[in-house]
């Protein structure tokens, strides 16, 4: 009996410690955020690093985002044809394609791809700097690591992602257009006209707002987990994994929240 009570308390303790860890890491993330904001206004802005990151996060992600978008557009056209042809609603395909791409698929897929690509790279780079004492060295060189590492990356993220997604929108629609005109024998002019007449400002805009938020999540979480890397190569590996997993989850969560906000507009 005594043993059972002990086990019960042990169990409670375990649950408690899990919650404690969740809350303390949320606290740390919030603190990290406030520090970044504070130093954004009080510290130096490293323009050169910002542009370098713009190339790394934005420009270099173009192929991945482009490929994802074109295939998504193509698949979307084929799948909706399968469904819509059953009740002769094929003419709605351009609308479905452009709506799904701009509002949903381009931002989310680009976000997830860039999280895997750039978020991981940021966490690995900063994590390595952390465990090899390069961040300590920065501090002794009177350089604030938030200003030098975090702020340029986050800025590059929130600017790149909307641009990437906008390009992804166009390529995605193009993918649907290619399938419909080349495979399904749609009239090209009608397809484009349908698309153009149907799409609204809010469709594209809501996608770009999502992209902005995702850009923040990816770069910020990458930096946060990099800064908190411990130990050697193994620790860097773990922080990379955490950064990708947590930013992917946050992207899906924020996507739902933002979608429901825009749904009510």
């Amino acid at each position: 009996m005594n043993n059972l009570i002990k086990k019960f308390f042990f169990f409670l303790k375990k649950i408690g410690s899990v919650f404690f860890e969740i809350f303390s890491s949320i606290g740390e993330i919030v603190l990290f955020f406030f520090n970044s904001v504070r130093y954004l206004f009080t510290g130096q802005f490293y323009t050169k690093i910002f542009f370098l990151q713009l190339i790394k996060i934005g420009y270099n992600s173009l192929p991945v985002v482009g490929l994802t978008s074109i295939f998504t557009g193509m698949v979307l056209a084929l799948q909706s044809y399968t469904g819509f042809s059953r009740f002769s609603a094929e003419s709605a395909i351009p609308n479905v394609v452009v709506l799904s791409i701009t509002r949903e698929l381009a931002p989310v897929l680009a976000g997830l791809m860039v999280a895997g690509r750039s978020g991981a790279a940021i966490a690995a780079e900063i994590g390595t700097m952390k465990v090899t004492e390069q961040i300590d060295a920065l501090k002794t060189l009177s350089t604030n690591p938030y200003n030098y590492l975090v702020i340029p990356r986050v800025f590059a993220g929130v600017i790149s992602l909307p641009i990437l997604v906008f390009i992804g929108d166009i390529i995605g629609v193009l993918g649907g257009y290619l399938i419909c005109t080349q495979v399904l024998n749609f009239n090209p002019v009608v397809y484009l006209q349908n698309t153009y007449n149907f799409v609204q400002f809010l469709d594209v805009f809501s996608g770009l707002v999502k992209a902005f938020v995702f850009g923040f999540i990816i770069t910020f979480m990458g930096c946060y987990y990099g800064f908190n890397a411990k130990g050697g190569a193994q620790g860097v590996g773990m922080s990379t994994t955490y950064s990708v997993v947590s930013s992917s989850i946050l992207i899906l969560l924020m996507n739902y929240i933002l979608t429901s906000l825009f749904f009510n507009l």
Binding site: E125, T128, E133, Q134, A137, L138, T140
Partner: peptide, 17 residues
């Protein structure tokens, strides 16, 4: 305070980028 110090780290800790 940290700025008063010049430090050679055990593993050098040069900025590798």
């Amino acid at each position: 305070y940290l700025g008063k110090f010049g430090i050679l780290f055990q593993n050098a800790a040069l900025l590798d980028s």
